[in-house]
């Protein structure tokens, strides 16, 4: 389709005042066994902004997201080429010498389906800290409250922190998973279609939460819902069969995309 994916960010694409680079995808190829799922991706990720990945199913948007915290390392036969540079220390996240656990300690993730652990609400949020060897009660208490407040869940659960997390509603479970991710102060938060399993009201609350969080944290979100991308993101990348077709400020992508294919997808003529 598209000969070479062109990525350019013009100064006009700057919707906010400051734009600091948090991470940078450079010439990324990804293979599932013999299948190449990502082809020559180049993309920036700006600090304390929301970047959305959109595109038809199978375009590789979730695959790209899962490269950021090396989730692909869990399964045999997967192979990365290229780099994802994390600033300010310039670590290449995909470097085989860099431990995937280190990457995941810095970059957290929220999944498509809420996946609370079979533990209490409190222990779910404290999990990341316990994994990091924190066991001091006062520190855990503070961080759990902070994270639950950050995920707009504190008020609803503060009286039943010992309850099993499964007893929460779907939307609450997803906010719990966000709190769990926030508790460890990640540098980037990845969202993999976080509302696809939720009803519209829960979806609205998650979207509102993402809007609040971006003041504190860099967010990358995969969504199959274009309205959602338009509502929550500052930048949008449109992908198609493993390639990045267009990356720009969300307003630009949605109002005057440069690429004909992006326009067709945005306007619903294709996809």
């Amino acid at each position: 389709m598209v000969a070479t994916p062109i990525v350019e960010v013009t100064s006009a694409a700057n919707p906010q005042q400051s734009k600091v680079l948090k991470a940078e995808v450079v010439d990324l190829n990804f293979h599932y066994g013999s299948v190449q799922a990502l082809k020559g991706i180049n993309m920036p990720l700006y600090e304390k902004h929301v970047t959305a990945l959109i595109g038809p199913s199978g375009c590789g948007k979730s695959t790209l997201l899962r490269c950021f915290n090396r989730m692909h390392d869990l399964y045999p036969g997967n192979r990365y080429e290229g780099r994802i540079k994390l600033h300010p220390d310039d670590t290449n996240l995909l470097d085989p010498k860099v431990d995937p656990i280190e990457v995941r300690m810095r970059i957290s993730m929220v999944f498509q389906k809420p996946n609370p652990f079979p533990k209490s609400i409190y222990e779910n949020v404290a999990y990341g800290l316990r994994v990091r060897g924190v066991s001091k009660r006062s520190v855990l208490d503070d961080k759990v409250e902070e994270a639950l407040s950050g995920a707009a869940l504190w008020g609803e659960v503060k009286d039943r922190l010992r309850d099993l997390a499964f007893n929460l509603s779907g939307g609450q479970q997803q906010r719990l998973c966000i709190a769990r991710a926030l508790a460890t102060d990640p540098e980037i938060l990845l969202f993999d279609e976080p509302t696809s399993a939720l009803d519209p009201i829960a979806t609205a609350s998650i979207e509102e939460l993402i809007g609040d969080l971006k003041n504190k944290i860099t967010i990358l979100i995969v969504t199959h819902n274009m309205q959602q991308a338009a509502r929550v993101s500052d930048f949008t990348a449109y992908m198609y069969i493993g390639e990045l077709v267009e990356f720009d400020a969300t307003d630009t992508i949605f109002i005057k995309p440069k690429n004909k294919q992006t326009e067709d997808y945005i306007t619903g003529r294709f996809g």
Binding site: I101, N115, P116, R132, T184
Partner: peptide
């Protein structure tokens, strides 16, 4: 995956 994503 949820656990690994937390750096476990």
């Amino acid at each position: 995956e949820g656990s690994y994503a937390m750096g476990a």
